[in-house]
Structures are given as C-alpha cells and as structure tokens.
Simulated scan of single mutants.
Amino acid sequence: MRERSRAAYPALAWVCRDPGRLIAFGLGSGLVRPASGTWGTLLAWAIWVAASPAATDLYIGIFLLLAFLYGCWACDRVGKELHQPDHVGMVWDEMVAFWLVLWFSPAGLLPQALAFVLFRTFDIVKPPPIMFFDARLKGGFGVMWDDIVAAFYALVIMALAARTGVFG
C-alpha cells in the first residue's frame, strides 16, 4: 500500500503562491493538522452548503468533472514538486469525491453527516479495491481516483439507507 507522506508540511506562503498548489492543498485546508483529509472534507462540506442551493445539476456535474480533471493535473504537479506523489496535505481529492457524495445524497444535516462519516471511513480504511487502486495507480489520477471509489462505496450505502427509509 502506498502510504501518504508524513513529511513536513510546506508553508502556507508556498501553497498560496500558485493556483495548482492552492487547489491541491484544498484552499489551504490540507495544511491543518492532524487529519488533513478530514479538514479538507469538512471544508468541502461547508462550500457545498453555501454553493449548492444556487447550482443546477448540470452546473454541478460540469464543475465536478472539471474539478476532477484539474485535480489530476494539480496533484500530479504538486506531488512532483514535493517529491511526495500523495502528500498528506493534498486534499483536493477528498473534496471532489465528497462533493460527488453530497450531490447524490439526500439534503439535510443527518444524511450529510452520515455521508461524511461513510466517506471518511472508506477513504481511511480503504477496503478492496480502493487499496488496490491506491497502491497501483500513480500520479495525479491515482491520487484522485481512489477517493472517487471511496465515494462510490459511500453512495451505495447512502442509496440503501434512503431506499429503506432511514431518512424518513
């Protein structure tokens, strides 16, 4: 399994000097310790709550596709700059994947909180095939893809919960 780097975090000034770095580090949320992936996911949630009511499904879908593609490029480049292909501070992958989960989850605090817990659990535990992808896919696409698979797992459980009436 490819483990995320425990190397030193770069300075906020270094991250803010370049748009690719700022995106890869989740608008700076990836610099918060410990558990930078969780902080990035929390920021994604806050952005979702603020922005999603004004967005149509078409715009959300286009945004997520572009955010994924830009994230592949940014995480690849920043990982090379840091000599850490999947530096623990790069959290754009968590943000994009969690937005995907929120997009297909029921609205409301309880469903979103459950989505948060499920996504973070799958992202941390990495059940198969997430661990397979995490270990074998390299570069920015690899950084982004394993979180998309974790999002899929969370979405399956969210769909089952919605189908069985858990959310009322």
Rank of each mutant, 00 (worst) to 15 (best):
P128E: 15
F132A: 06
A54S: 11
G71M: 09
A11Y: 09
R120L: 02
G40N: 10
V101D: 02
R33G: 07
C16A: 14
A107R: 13
W92A: 14
A67D: 05
A44E: 10
A159E: 14
G142N: 13
L82Q: 11
C75D: 05
V156W: 01
R17K: 12
S52A: 15
F133W: 03
V96D: 00
M90Y: 13
C75L: 07
H87F: 07
A159F: 06
D123I: 03
M144N: 10
A44L: 11
A55Q: 08
I148A: 15
A97H: 02
F25W: 06
A13Y: 08
K80I: 02
G61Q: 05
W14R: 14
L66W: 01
V32C: 03
D18N: 15
A8P: 08
T164S: 06
A54V: 08
V166R: 01
P111A: 01
F167S: 03
A135M: 04
R4C: 09
L31F: 03
V166H: 00
I62Q: 00
G26E: 10
G89T: 08
V117K: 04
P129N: 09
M95V: 14
Q112Y: 08
L43H: 10
A159Q: 12
A46L: 13
K126D: 08
F98W: 07
E94I: 09
A8L: 08
W92D: 04
V78F: 01
F63H: 04
R33A: 11
M95I: 14
D123C: 13
P129K: 12
I47A: 10
G30M: 01
K138I: 08
I23H: 11
R120C: 05
S105D: 08
L102M: 14
P53Q: 09
R4F: 04
L82D: 11
L137Q: 11
I148H: 03
R77E: 09
H83L: 14
E81C: 10
L69N: 12
L58D: 02
Y9A: 15
A50T: 13
D147A: 13
D147H: 01
A55I: 01
H83Q: 13
F63Y: 07
L110I: 15
A8N: 10
A161I: 02
F116I: 05
M158Q: 13
L155W: 00
V96W: 00
Y59D: 01
W14T: 12
W92N: 11
L110Q: 07
M95R: 12
L100N: 07
M158K: 05
Q84V: 11
E81K: 11
A115K: 02
I62M: 00
L22Q: 02
W14D: 15
A150N: 05
M1D: 05
P19N: 09
G79N: 07
P19L: 12
R33M: 06
L137W: 03
K138C: 05
M131G: 04
V101W: 06
A74E: 15
S36E: 10
A150V: 02
V156Q: 14
T56L: 00
Q112I: 04
Y153G: 06
A162N: 14
W45S: 05
L114Y: 02
D147M: 09
V49P: 00
A107K: 12
E81D: 15
F133G: 11
F122Y: 06
W73H: 15
A11V: 12
K80D: 05
A74F: 12
W45A: 02
T41N: 02
V91Y: 12
R33Y: 05
